[in-house]
């Protein structure tokens, strides 16, 4: 099935710079329908307020971390199937294992480039 490039993507990171980088790289890849949040709590609010097709979230954030959000998403009946990509500076093996066990669809270690982002997106939503 062809990927809908108009899919709604939620980008969550407490660093505004990082959100801008991800949003711009997504735009370069043809995905312009993007919304953003600065931590897990506001990310959850965006999920509830908007129809989100894909979540790209940082791990380390104040209030609610990306991992906590992932666990909350997977535990909810409504959003449990939403594709979820974790983006983090922590490349520790145990973190990756925890994220996978919590139901993450893919895991990107910072710093990353557009090619890596595309590769992970293809794995999660299909080729485009």
């Amino acid at each position: 099935m062809a990927v809908d490039k108009n899919m709604r993507i939620l980008v969550i990171d407490d660093f505004q710079t990082m959100r801008r980088i991800i949003i711009n790289l997504l735009r370069q890849l043809g995905f312009a329908n993007v919304t953003e949040a600065d931590d897990g709590t506001t990310g959850w609010e965006r999920l509830e307020a908007d129809k989100i097709d894909l979540v790209i979230s940082d791990w380390n954030m104040p209030q609610m971390t990306g991992l906590e959000l992932l666990q909350k998403v997977r535990a909810s009946e409504q959003y449990k199937t939403i594709p979820f990509i974790m983006v983090t500076a922590e490349g520790k093996r145990e973190n990756v294992i925890t994220a996978v066990q919590s139901g993450v669809n893919n895991y990107i270690v910072k710093p990353f480039n557009a090619a890596t982002l595309k590769e992970k997106l293809v794995k999660v939503i299909g080729d485009f």
Binding site: T17, N24, Q28, P111
Partner: peptide, 19 residues
């Protein structure tokens, strides 16, 4: 445009060094 994308990618440094 590709060069501009590389500049965006390079801006990753701010987040990583910040952390």
């Amino acid at each position: 445009n590709t060069s501009i994308t590389f500049v965006y990618e390079a801006c990753n440094f701010q987040d990583v060094t910040g952390q």
